[in-house]
Simulated assay, not measured.
Amino acid sequence: MDSGARGRRLRRRLALGAAVLAVSGAFTFTATGAAQAAGAAGGCAGREVRTLPFKTGVTHVYQSNAYVCAVTVPRNPGAARTMSVSVQARGNRPVVDKGRYRYHAGPVTVHAGHRCVWIKGAVGRYATSSGWILC
């Protein structure tokens, strides 16, 4: 195995570890009132700053301090179907949750600081994309 492949694998593992720490840190600072709102949002902390509706669902975007979180919810929950949600801070790779879910995809949280973010969400074959927002 060459050193380039080994370096890429190490960077992927470090990025995953940083994402796990960011998510756990975001949940640690959740206050009781925000925790109740987070339960309804599928696990996102903070205040809702955008709603991105599309034909088969809605992607909700939340912001708390320097963190941005998103969750995609189908219009008709219950049946398992392909769903996804992604959040990308400008200059970084997107963090994605994609799979077959019944009630929601996500939450996906990233540390954005003061950078713009790009949010995408999909349920089935219909999707939404925000463009660069929250700049």
Rank of each mutant, 00 (worst) to 15 (best):
R50V: 01
T51W: 03
T51C: 01
L52A: 08
P53S: 09
F54V: 02
K55Q: 15
K55G: 09
K55R: 15
K55H: 14
K55E: 15
T56E: 15
T56M: 13
G57Q: 13
G57Y: 13
G57E: 13
V58P: 07
T59Y: 10
T59C: 05
T59D: 07
T59N: 08
H60P: 01
V61W: 14
V61H: 11
V61L: 10
Y62A: 02
Y62T: 03
Q63L: 05
Q63R: 15
Q63M: 07
S64C: 00
S64E: 10
S64P: 00
S64W: 10
N65C: 02
N65H: 14
N65I: 12
N65T: 12
A66D: 15
A66K: 11
A66M: 10
V68R: 01
V68W: 03
C69R: 01
C69Q: 00
A70P: 03
A70N: 03
A70W: 03
A70Q: 03
V71F: 02
V71H: 01
V71E: 02
V71R: 03
T72S: 02
T72K: 01
T72G: 01
V73A: 10
V73N: 11
V73D: 07
P74G: 05
R75M: 05
R75T: 13
R75K: 15
R75E: 09
N76H: 12
P77T: 05
P77Y: 10
G78Q: 00
G78A: 02
G78Y: 03
A79Q: 14
A79P: 00
A80V: 05
A80S: 11
A80G: 01
A80F: 07
R81W: 02
R81P: 00
R81N: 02
T82S: 14
T82A: 12
T82Q: 13
T82C: 00
M83D: 09
M83K: 04
S84I: 00
S84H: 06
S84P: 01
V85H: 10
V85M: 07
S86C: 04
S86K: 04
S86N: 06
V87P: 05
Q88H: 10
Q88A: 12
A89L: 03
R90I: 00
G91R: 06
G91H: 02
G91M: 08
G91W: 08
G91A: 05
G91Q: 06
N92Q: 12
N92H: 10
R93Y: 06
R93D: 11
P94T: 09
P94I: 08
V95Q: 14
V95D: 12
V95L: 15
V96Q: 07
V96H: 02
D97T: 08
D97Q: 11
K98L: 07
K98A: 11
G99C: 00
G99I: 03
R100K: 12
R100H: 07
Y101D: 09
Y101Q: 10
Y101L: 11
Y103W: 14
Y103G: 09
H104S: 15
H104Y: 15
H104M: 12
A105M: 14
A105Y: 12
A105R: 12
A105P: 11
G106M: 07
G106C: 04
G106I: 05
G106Q: 03
P107V: 04
P107T: 05
V108Y: 06
V108R: 06
V108F: 08
V108W: 09
T109Y: 03
T109A: 04
T109L: 07
